[in-house]
Amino acid sequence: MSSDNNINSSIAVLGRLIMKKAVRSLFSNFCSEIMQFSNQLSKEFTRFEITFYSGDGILLKVSPYSELFLVSIGENPSIDVRVLDRGGFVRGLDLSLKHYLDSLSEV
């Protein structure tokens, strides 16, 4: 429980980089949904982004900026989705979920 609280507070701190309240709310909601994909996902925080990854090949980076957040899915090359509104949120989450489910199927 305290570990969850730490993660949530780290996400909240990162989210402060986003100026718009509505986009900040989407950012924390987005990270929460990603974390619920699996208990096995590891999280790594830097000052400017959060990375979700696992040994199954799942790699999702979420980077907040002042007006939006960027979702980078996979690597070499990654698919980048700019999230400014609900439409971007849906697109980013749908592609992230597909990436996660495809990675699971390949194991």
Binding site: N29, Q36, F37, F89, V90, L93, D94, L97, L101
Partner: peptide, 23 residues
């Protein structure tokens, strides 16, 4: 259940629809 996917994903709902409870 809380986590994704829900069965709407497999029933080929549009992302706007099956992800509505996430929003």
């Amino acid at each position: 259940g809380r986590g994704l996917p829900n069965a709407g994903y497999y029933f080929t709902f549009e992302p706007e629809e099956y992800l509505l409870p996430a929003l």
